[in-house]
Design a binder for these strands. Sequence first.
RNA 1: CGGGGCGUAGCGCAGUCCGGUUAGCGCACCUGCUUUGGGAGCAGGGGGCCGCAGGUUCGAAUCCUGCCGCCCCGACCA
Length: 488
Amino acid sequence: MAKEITSRSENYSQWYLDIVRKAGLADNSAVRGCMVIKPTGFAIWENMKAQLDQMFKDTGHVNAYFPLFIPKSFLSKEADHVEGFAKECAVVTHHRLMNNPEGSGVVVDPSAKLEEELIVRPTSETIIWNTYKDWIQSYRDLPLLINQWANVVRWEMRTRPFLRTAEFLWQEGHTAHASKEEAIQEAELIHEVYARFAEDYMAMPVIKGRKTESERFAGADDTFTIEALMQDGRALQAGTSHFLGQNFAKAFDVKYMTPENKENYVWATSWGVSTRLVGGLIMTHSDDEGLVLPPKLAPIQVVIIPIPKPDEVLMQHAERIADNLKTRGIRVKIDRDDQKRPGFKFAQYEMEGVPIRVGIGKRDLEKNLIEVARRDTKEKQSISINGCESFLVDLLDEIQNNLLAKAKAFREEHTSSVDNFEDFKSVISGKGGFVKAHWDGTAETENKIKELTKATIRCIPIEDDEETGVCVYSGAPSKRRVIFAKAY
RNA sequence: CGGGGCGUAGCGCAGUCCGGUUAGCGCACCUGCUUUGGGAGCAGGGGGCCGCAGGUUCGAAUCCUGCCGCCCCGACCA
């Protein structure tokens, strides 16, 4: 049998594309740069979404929905913001088609030109702040804590499924606060929520930090980021939370009355994670046999395969185990296909990343045994069918923990501290990964390093202690190390 | 937007240089039989405007011109 998946060592990006395709996560679409998210891929996103949505609600946020289209004039109200997004906006200019007078098909009706062109949202700050202006009058209206689940469009030159597509799904939170301190706390709170989600649910360890000015969101005063490390040694920005200061409040004239009857501009945050997380999930855990999913996000956590094929006795046992697992909240599937052989199914479910496979076999059953295979280590063992449910539930936890531990170990192995530029260059071009180095704090140095090595400052880490040193490039004094890496 | 590659069945490809009967192969699909504890075997079968549009020719997947699309590698971005 031909190998279905290119190995990571042979061609990493082909490996990634093979997994997306062979595990049935997404297809290319008729529209360049856009993908079709298939049921399995979407189920992963739905699981992420359900968890994040709960976490947002637990921290006091509510959901709403704002329009897909944004009047062009809104974009230009905040100077940095328009600068950041202008180059990648899809623009609606007309609102009607007509039959082609010179042949078949339809053409744009030139008489149906819009008075004001509409922008397909690349992000919703502008239309939301235009709305908030009407919602906020008094300090009693604050804080306003709103999230929306939506699609956005950024016209990218080069796309990859999940990691960068022209249209993607995400959530964007937009909050308004009476004080600067409260807005900063909000941005930090969500930063923490993102980090917890990444580690506890995705089993993807992240570094929490701040963006440098040049890497910051267009229109933000401060951007918090979680940065993950992929298996090819490149960094993935997995979620950002922005303190927007009063930039949008001023641009859209959003003021509130204080208890002292004084007029103030409100303070703002925005924050988002996207379907890019699915790409990060794939690249954090998967191997040359296919997708590996952490149990907490796996659409199917346990698959039960009757061996050699379904019959009445085997199915009775399978259904009893499945029912018991469902009662305990486990997502379980019984493979009822009687055409494919077990070997094929084993390979298939491995490719699809199902965390646990249970084989109920005729011969084992005579000894009251079932076979349990875990996807993360590929280990198999026979256990007693009696009480197997507890074992399986525990094993799911163990797999979840093991995946996080493995990813952490990988990150440790691929995090280097360097103190001179020669070492810096050789680590970046060699083993890659995160590189902790001193930086003089200037954009000039940052750009120069990027130009020479393709590495960018992923973040200024929040949790590391201060440590005096000298900039790895310029030799100027530095108070702390920052994280460099080549990034997605 | 630069540099390279590719468009032939659902997918992966051969055939194109050097034009010549009904355009092939593998996987997948359908039917039947035998199989069934790690990607089954045999037999039979269906499926193609050879990317599109012009041109050359008795004859074009093959040669010429133009267009379109996709992929890879760079510059820009979550």
